[in-house]
Simulated assay, not measured.
Amino acid sequence: MRAAVLGSPIEHSLSPFLHRAAYAAMGLDGWRYDAFEVGEDRLPAFLAALDGPWAGLSLTMPLKRAVLPLLDSVSELAVEVGGANTVIFRDGGAHGDNTDVYGIEQALAEAGVPAPRSALVLGGGATAASALAALRNLGLGEATLAVREPARAGETLAVAERLGVALRVERLDKLDALLDVDLVVSTLPGRAADEHAVRLARVPALFDVVYSPWPTAAALAVRQAGGTVVGGFAMLLHQAVRQVELMTGRTGVPVEAMRAAGEAELSRRSAPAG
């Protein structure tokens, strides 16, 4: 049985290490998991060319939204957030789902972050949409979104409306006035949140979706000030756990084996060369 992760760029994806560790621990000797460089333009042809025993696909940037019209069915959650990071092949069809929301919820729970009464989300992409869904599932009916260009937040506003979340959109350069919240979720790419590290140090909890390099300056600032920090690796791990469940049809996925494999690969990548 085959599975794979698709995206562009894809060479640094941790998904193969996580999924292969699960297969090994579960005794799924006939399973393989690969990585393919696939952009939006190549996605339709890639899906059409699949043959043989495929269980599913993991999708990363920029495919989570582009895949929706190519699927036979899409889960209600994936429709709400406007993106599927998971494709399951069953009953002769391709079915889309979203495990990023589950990953965020589990990462927060694992770190002991209580359900927030107020939250601020930085950035307006696909991960921000999943963060809003996770906050909704945790009982939050309203949130604030901070982006560089509020005029370009239309897609995220549409997601919030589908989720039933009242969303206020503000400019990221007004961050100082927005930090009186229980939780900040930064979905900004790379180390983009680091320029705000001093400001973010005053929040009680930060979820920074970056996992490499880690820790970010923003995460360090919050941790040193006594706040709770959640990193992107925990989200990546738990969304992959749910993907393995969906693709294999099994429960009891070996979370700790997957965690160890992912952490070992991250350590290898961060080790000095030579």
Rank of each mutant, 00 (worst) to 15 (best):
E155F: 12
G39K: 14
A49K: 00
V181N: 04
L28K: 11
V181P: 09
R223P: 08
A107W: 10
A66H: 11
S58Y: 07
S186M: 04
A134Y: 13
V87N: 02
L63Q: 09
D100W: 14
V147N: 02
Y33W: 08
V79H: 13
E256N: 04
Q224E: 15
F89T: 00
A22F: 13
L167G: 12
T99Y: 10
Y211H: 09
S13R: 07
F233Q: 02
G125E: 06
G123T: 11
G96L: 03
F46M: 05
G30C: 04
T60K: 08
V81W: 02
L200Q: 07
A35M: 10
E149Q: 08
A197F: 07
E256D: 15
A240I: 10
T86G: 03
R20F: 02
L179N: 06
D208K: 11
G227W: 05
A111W: 13
L108A: 08
D34P: 03
R65I: 02
D41G: 11
N137D: 13
F207M: 12
L47Y: 01
V210W: 01
T156V: 13
L43Y: 00
L6T: 04
V198H: 09
T127D: 01
S75N: 06
V255W: 12
L77Y: 10
G154R: 13
V181L: 04
A66Q: 11
R191K: 13
M26A: 11
R117V: 11
L188H: 07
R20W: 01
